[in-house]
């Protein structure tokens, strides 16, 4: 069964995906940000469900998460904000966050709600492959959700093959050994890594995230892959210039 992620990836182009933290800068900016991103040609969106202790994130996303929680964002409120989103938005939508809030909501209840809203996939960096497969895969599939796994430059070929086999949608290629928002530009190390993955000829498309911030890094990242995800750079931009400056940001990427 295809969903919007699979369909979008069939369009033979380099996808631009944007991550933002729901509830930031203001609690009720969520729908407006999503609509504006689509209007300005973004292909896919990661909606960040804020968490108090985001282990894989650098200062920018940590701070936006803290602010979003302070603004009052909760899982329930986010679902409520998104309830009519499919009336106005047709690109793939993915919820990205950490596993504990999902666990507390109830994994099945969470997935069911995602299906009702029209969410296409979930990224939970701290839900490991083995736990997902033994406990949750059946639930995700029941509600038509793609679970997106991460790989990094340190991930072994053997494990990448395992993840490829378990994946549907895309594989999230973390560009370098870092938390989000911390690298400036890609060097030789990244080129070697991108090349290594390209040559593995995986069945699942790959999209690169972490360290993409402008047209140059976007082009580098999408040379051998299907797309790139921008998070921290986007959040920095709207922090400085406000949510009205979304078109300006997208134009400088492509």
């Amino acid at each position: 069964m295809n969903n919007r992620i699979n369909n979008k990836l069939k369009e033979d182009e380099k996808l631009l995906s944007i991550y933002f933290t729901a509830g930031y800068p203001a609690l009720n900016d969520t729908v407006q940000i999503i609509q504006d991103l689509e209007k300005n040609g973004v292909d896919m969106i990661e909606i960040g469900l804020p968490f108090s202790d985001p282990l894989a994130d650098g200062p920018t996303i940590q701070e936006s998460s803290t602010a979003a929680l302070k603004n009052g964002m909760t899982t329930e409120i986010l679902f409520d904000q998104l309830k009519d989103i499919r009336k106005s938005v047709s690109i793939p939508l993915i919820v990205m966050g950490y596993f504990n809030p999902l666990l507390q909501y109830g994994v099945e209840a969470f997935c069911k709600k995602c299906e009702e809203i029209g969410i296409d996939g979930i990224i939970m960096p701290d839900l490991p492959l083995d736990v997902y497969q033994s406990e949750y895969e059946a639930i995700f599939k029941k509600y038509g959700l793609r679970n997106i796994f991460l790989i990094t430059p340190q991930t072994s070929d053997e494990r990448i093959r395992q993840i490829d086999k378990a994946s549907d949608g895309f594989i999230y290629m973390v560009s370098s050994a870092s938390v989000t928002g911390s690298k400036s530009g890609f060097g030789q190390e990244q080129e070697i890594y991108f090349e290594r993955i390209f040559k593995m000829n995986l069945k699942t498309p790959q999209i690169i995230g972490f360290g993409i911030k402008d047209a140059e890094t976007f082009q580098q990242a999408t040379k051998t892959t299907n797309g790139a995800i921008i998070g921290s750079a986007f959040i920095k931009h709207i922090t400085a210039k406000g949510v009205d400056a979304i078109p300006e940001f997208i134009k400088q990427i492509r």
């Binding site: 968490f51 108090s52 202790d53 282990l55 929680l69 909760t74 899982t75 329930e76 950490y98 596993f99 504990n100 809030p101 999902l102 666990l103 507390q104 909501y105 701290d126």
Partner: peptide, 20 residues
């Protein structure tokens, strides 16, 4: 109550929403 903190599932002080 049961939750995830610092890489393990354990008893954890948290909000109903799963924030630590």
């Amino acid at each position: 109550k049961v939750g995830i903190i610092h890489g393990c599932k354990t008893m954890l002080m948290q909000t109903v929403d799963g924030q630590i």
